[in-house]
Amino acid sequence: MSEKTIVDRSEIQVRDLHKSFGDNHVLRGIDMEVGRGEVVCVIGPSGSGKSTLLRCVNLLEEPSKGQVFVGGTELTDPDVDIDAVRRRIGMVFQQFNLFPHLTVTENLTLPQRRVLRRGKAESARVAAENLRRVGLAEKAEAYPSSLSGGQQQRVAIARALAMGPEVMLFDEPTSALDPELVGDVLAVMRMLADEGMTMMVVTHEMTFAREVADRVVFMDGGVIVEDGAPEQVITAPRHERTRHFLSRLLDPAMAEVEEESADQVGKSE
């Protein structure tokens, strides 16, 4: 599955990125790249800093140190027009964050009109087209509160796509969904990946990561522990921390036993 992408230019580049919240040093020197058209899944235990890393890539969090480049523009440059750069970066949140006072169509048209200064007709056309892409054309006039979580998330993806982004960031897009609704959202993401969208996805969906990602990055304790092809990182991890995380994820009961024995080792030391 991998090897298909030849990285002609890196779309996202992160250099020696650090982020602290007070005394809490969340990111401790991250270096990574995402090539154009590449799909990179970031996995890791909660608190490992993966969401923070993603939020640093469009500067929703201000990095404490280091550099972030997207499409050749340095976001960490103090003179950068961050609003202009963010128009090229779509972001999808765990909690969808649709605008509840607007209809589905208005959720898609308002940002186009206010931010991109598109006309009424054009923004409506782009909105309709993107709602069709995520399979929700019939919900155009509905309000977000009347939609299921999976539908809301697909609208959120359509809203980001309507801005014509070069890069899409996904922050645990299926974590807030009921299990039976996850599939529809993943299907839309898979479609985007097949169309060649550059994607950085923080997720716990190992099947998605294995089947769709070109690369998988495993983070723990604010650093990248492992970075490689999905079959290597997920199926045959080199590092003990990766193995431990994956075994916990795949078989929680098993992990507990492991943890206990690890504790005992710790005590005997």
Partner: peptide, 24 residues
């Protein structure tokens, strides 16, 4: 999350306040 969503779409803080936050 409403402000974050607006900012991630390229709204400036003032415009996000006027178009998204204040109406809600």
């Amino acid at each position: 999350g409403q402000m974050e969503a607006a900012r991630s779409l390229g709204f400036s803080p003032a415009r996000a306040m006027v178009s998204i936050i204040i109406p809600q």
